[in-house]
Design a protein around this nucleic acid. Structure first.
Lengths: 191, 191
DNA sequence: GTAGTGGCTTGAACTAGATTAAGAAATTGA
DNA sequence: TCAATTTCTTAATCTAGTTCAAGCCACTAC
């Protein structure tokens, strides 16, 4: 399956655009291949693209004043990623997005997305549903962060993303879980 | 300002509906007054309404198996609240939403919202923008939960919601911050 | 080969924040 | 008005998770 077929498949699950709309949408996309370790976006730079992952795996992380990385999200095929705040406000991003494995992404430039929504408002619905679902996921993550122990969070992570552990170095999983790699090591030993 | 004027004011900041659309939107809304302590939604019941607060203050919390409450959100005038997951899936809600002070809300029933979006797709844009903004806020909260100390989180909360501390019992603020009331007490003494 | 580098583990000492228990202060209510 | 309930504080003890320091294992590069 080509990467454009893949994203159309994803879209058709939520809305039913006509062929003309689909064609226009696809024409706005910018396919990019990333090798492992390469950056899709860097903290400090303004984000111009909304990113859809079609193959591989990316992660988005925040680097605080002390230089510690906090992983916000992993994104595999079918996910949208990128810094929404920077994309909306056109202020420098606070996030870095980087390939954890050789990956393929589709860039949707902000200005192109605005054109799309202007011309074919049907796509508002698609993005509304995407954001709405994402919001539920984020709410769950906040609850989990506050109410579950590190060990519970790790096991929930394994259940939810069973294949991620092969892809992703443990230190990034630790960061995603909000713990140190040392402590994750201890949790894993127990089992 | 009436509560319907208030919500229209809020909507006009994001989209520009024509009078006919505004009128239809307003006709879908169901104004409700809540006394302090009353419930807008209860955990265990299916959520049928999306809620817009026009006066007062509500809070939404999650109760875990041990019976501990975790406050997810405070909502004052101008905010949307409610359990998106239950609203979308029509499964029983895991959240309770309750008035912290005498309040006024506008209920937008799920089925009515669907009618609205069907008939006037322009409103998709409004909700898309709402969810998009909310997502940014939630992302920030996740970062804060993992990278900031309880003390920093408390001071950030004070900065961000300067009036909330008068409204809201401290134990709920502690819960929102993910700490015990005892520890919040210690933090406050220091200052 | 072996020197380097990054990812993972181990253990000892430490700390942010929880738990428990009690008392003080503020609200409510008949 | 005074008892009852709820909210807030204080202090002692305890624990989940951090920090620091070291060692181990793969993998790469000269």
């Amino acid at each position: 399956m080509t990467s454009t077929n893949q994203i159309l498949f994803h879209i058709r699950k939520n809305i039913t655009p006509d062929p003309k709309e689909e064609q226009f949408f696809v024409s706005l996309l910018n396919p990019v291949k990333l090798k492992q370790g390469e950056f899709a976006e860097k903290a400090g730079e303004v984000t111009y693209n909304f990113i859809h992952v079609t193959a591989g795996c990316l992660m988005t992380y925040y680097t605080d004043k002390q230089g510690n990385d906090q992983v916000i999200q992993f994104a595999t095929a079918g996910w949208w990623t990128g810094d929404l705040h920077s994309l909306t406000s056109q202020q420098p991003s606070i996030y870095t997005t980087r390939a954890l494995a050789d990956s393929e992404i589709l860039q949707l430039p902000k200005v192109r997305m605005e054109e799309l929504l202007e011309r074919y408002p049907r796509f508002e619905r698609y993005f509304r549903i995407m954001f709405q679902n994402s919001l539920v996921t984020h709410q769950n993550r906040i609850i989990e962060a506050f109410t579950a122990t590190a060990e519970e969070r790790y096991h929930n992570f394994q259940k939810k993303y069973p294949h991620m552990e092969q892809y992703v170095p443990l230190k990034y999983i630790a960061s995603y879980l909000g713990i140190t790699p040392e402590f994750l090591s201890k949790i894993r030993r127990k089992k």
